[in-house]
């Protein structure tokens, strides 16, 4: 019982505090023991980069074209009577070794009643699909199996599902390596396979730096946990057809991370993110440009109800 009828700093209060901390420590040690047991049963491989990680990375990436796709969005500015939001997706392409690069944008105006996150995901997936040429390595900032979408409305869930399935199928059809990189994953797939409720990244927190787990498969998607920096392991998702050659693919993922500014996130995604961002100044510019023709939100709501939009 954590509740008691005295002051916090009292004989009873101190005793309760001590007991709580002891119990917490016991629980933590038990969890750690379970994690170590799981960790020792998972096949973990190492990547040898040598002392000079950036030099190693450019050797691995020489001649490889990598494309990073990331998006950003502006929510409908209801408070200013603007009944639409917008999504902007940047595809950053770099030909390593040749010094060539470009950024392409795809944007979409999103209606008030549309789910802006799902629209953004669909646009990101379609940008990835249009870059699947059988040669480039595609990187996406997020998962390839939007499991969270199952908890949403049927229509929205299907939008996510359709976009992801199409991209994964196209990657297999064109044999274009396609990697979903999740920097901070809250997945519990490995943990649940062992019958416990913990985050996988927590279980694998003691993995050696510069190592990765052998891929796990779930349907036509595979995933692996990689640890390229002292922070918690990241999750990498990819279509099942890449599983056989994963050791080769993961080396490219690692090299991209070594080029990044933090050593734990792919350079190509870091750059895509920086180009995708809609800055506060840009938001202000939209507001200035569209604000003049703003509508009353009350009026929009009434119309939406009347016409069922």
């Amino acid at each position: 019982m954590l509740e008691f009828g005295d002051k916090v700093v009292s004989q009873e209060g101190i005793l309760k505090f001590k007991m709580f901390v002891k119990d917490f420590k016991r629980e933590l040690e038990e969890k750690k023991r379970i994690c170590n047991d799981i960790l020792s049963s998972i096949n973990i491989k190492k990547i040898k980069t040598g002392k000079n990680k950036k030099k190693w990375a450019i050797k691995v990436l020489d001649g490889i074209t990598a494309i990073g796709v990331d998006g950003s969005q502006i929510q409908p500015l209801r408070e200013f009577g603007i009944p639409a939001g917008a999504v902007q997706v940047a595809s950053f392409r770099v030909e390593h070794g040749k010094g060539l690069w470009n950024v392409r944008y795809t944007s979409k105006i999103v209606r008030l009643e549309e789910n802006i996150d799902a629209t953004r995901y669909a646009l990101e997936m379609s940008s990835l699909c249009s870059n699947m040429d059988g040669k480039s390595y595609l990187f996406y900032d997020g998962g390839l199996s939007p499991t969270f979408a199952r908890e949403m409305s049927r229509e929205v869930g299907e939008k996510y599902e359709r976009a992801a399935v199409n991209a994964v199928k196209r990657s297999e059809m064109t044999k274009t390596p396609f990697i979903g990189y999740i920097d901070r994953s809250y997945a519990k797939d490995v943990a649940r396979a062992y019958g416990i409720e913990l985050y996988d990244s927590f279980i694998l927190a003691e993995m050696e730096v510069m190592s990765y787990t052998e891929p796990f498969q779930s349907g036509n998607i595979c995933y692996s946990y990689v640890r390229f920096s002292p922070s918690l392991p990241s999750r990498v998702e990819f279509p099942a057809w890449m599983k056989k050659e994963f050791d080769r693919f993961v080396e490219v993922v690692c090299a991209e991370c070594m080029l990044g500014s933090t050593y734990s996130y792919p350079y190509v995604l870091e750059r895509a993110h920086s180009y995708a961002v809609i800055t506060e100044n840009e938001k202000k510019a939209i507001l200035e440009a569209v604000g003049g023709i703003s509508l009353s939100f009350k009026w929009i709501s009434k119309l939406s109800h009347t016409f069922g939009r």
């Binding site: 950036k54 030099k55 450019i58 770099v94 070794g97 010094g99 080029l259 500014s261 750059r271």
Partner: peptide
């Protein structure tokens, strides 16, 4: 400056050209 590490300018031009 954020990305350079042990790379020289020529390598940055070739591998991380946009920075």
């Amino acid at each position: 400056i954020k990305y350079a590490g042990e790379l020289n300018k020529k390598e940055i031009e070739a591998y991380l050209p946009d920075v």
